[in-house]
Design a protein around this nucleic acid. Structure first.
Lengths: 226, 226
DNA sequence: TCTCTTGTTGAACGACCGTACAACAAGAGA
DNA sequence: TCTCTTGTTGTACGGTCGTTCAACAAGAGA
């Protein structure tokens, strides 16, 4: 496969030239391809499968390309982590803000309910990302740069959630420690997701969603219809 | 250090023989030493530090000893995981049972409160074990043998917790889904512990304990004094 | 003191790791 | 069509990995 194909390629009498052996991509495009391939390796085999050989094979490129586009393999790992963090947390915040901006006449409980439900959508509440998040957490605990990124993103998400909680509480004249409740809610979601990933017989995504709503409703009253 | 010491060792005229180059241990003792050293490596450097060289150096033995006492490095990893699982989960269950057996005249809420509090004791609610648990969870997701061990232990712990919850609920004439509440409580504890490990500014162990009690008290009534 | 069992050692091996780098060629612009 | 830029390739290298195994020696029993 790596061998140059001699027959037909250099032939003068033939009509066609040999097909290109590879295609050139813009640096940004290739970087994204490598980050996605690396994330796939990480999610399937954990950090043990995060090697130059496997990632390049997964991306369909040669061994030298990672060190051309990234300072090192660790640099790629950091990019994968950043990408995962932004993809999950930032997206949820952006969606919440968009909902509130587009439909400013929504009742506060509708915005909060939508934000709660998004946590349990298959896109986020997915077993696929377990190994990525486990190694990501392990790296956050060790790498100050990632710790800072994690702190900022989670603070932003927690603040967004607390804001939505407070809006409901204020309207209903309830005394609620919104930041603490938001923090506990996130912990509950993470814990339930983890339990579900490790043993799917313990809890279903539906039961997890119900538990999440129950925690909030115990303090701010009903959030769901019916 | 690895060099044999020629002077003084083989000397015939001297009074003393050379000191032993190593000490022989019973297989069980040596296995435990290796498991503990391996756990130390894992907790400090994550799965990346789980290598023959580092573990043997940590244990103060030669490179060949791991493969003598364990079928492979993976076999040692499984033993470390089993040891961690049993040490944390089984201990809590045993303590709970012992409390109930020794002091059968305790009110049910005292037993439940003690079980709740044990989760937040420094022994368990410790940042030291983060990297061990992250890699352990990653292995549980992949290794059927460990998945089974995890399921059994967590089922037992959840059942113990649910039993204590139900005892309080029955005495107080409250309708409670004890198994679901126990499952949610464990998820909350795991989630808060994780948040605390990753960013200690988010929550303190005291606040985490308060959140745990609040979740239970919302359904079964007061559990703490005052 | 001697013998024997067996826990322990440490070198050797092949496999795989991440990185560096010289050669190559794709494709845009002249 | 030709030139030049630069994305891409693939080999080579030193280091580390897990495993094997022949030799060694600690220490109990005779």
């Amino acid at each position: 496969m790596t061998e140059a194909q001699p027959e037909g390629a250099k032939r003068k009498g033939g009509a066609k030239k040999a097909p290109p052996r590879f295609s050139r991509e813009q640096a940004d495009v290739r970087r994204s391809m490598l980050i996605e391939a690396a994330a796939r390796c990480l999610s399937v085999g954990g950090i043990g499968a995060f090697t130059i050989d496997r990632i390049c094979k997964e991306a369909g490129v040669s061994r030298g390309l990672i060190n051309h586009h990234f300072e090192s393999l660790d640099g790629l790992l950091v990019e994968v982590y950043k990408s995962s963090l932004y993809a999950s947390v930032n997206n949820q915040i952006a969606e919440a803000k968009r909902r509130r901006a587009e439909t400013s006449d929504w009742p506060p409980e509708a915005a909060l309910a939508a934000l709660v439900q998004s946590n349990f959508a298959p896109e986020y509440f997915s077993r696929e990302n377990l190994l990525i998040w486990l190694s990501l957490w392990g790296e956050i605990a060790v790498n100050p740069r990632l710790k800072e990124a994690h702190r900022e993103l989670y603070d932003a998400y927690r603040a967004e959630l607390a804001e939505d909680i407070a809006a409901v509480a204020v309207q209903r004249d309830k005394q609620v420690d919104a930041p603490a409740l938001a923090r506990n809610f996130i912990a509950l979601v993470d814990g339930l997701w983890l339990e579900w990933c490790l043993d799917e017989s313990v809890v279903t995504p539906q039961a997890a969603e119900a538990a999440g709503f129950e925690m909030l409703e115990a303090q701010v009253g009903p959030l769901r219809d019916s």
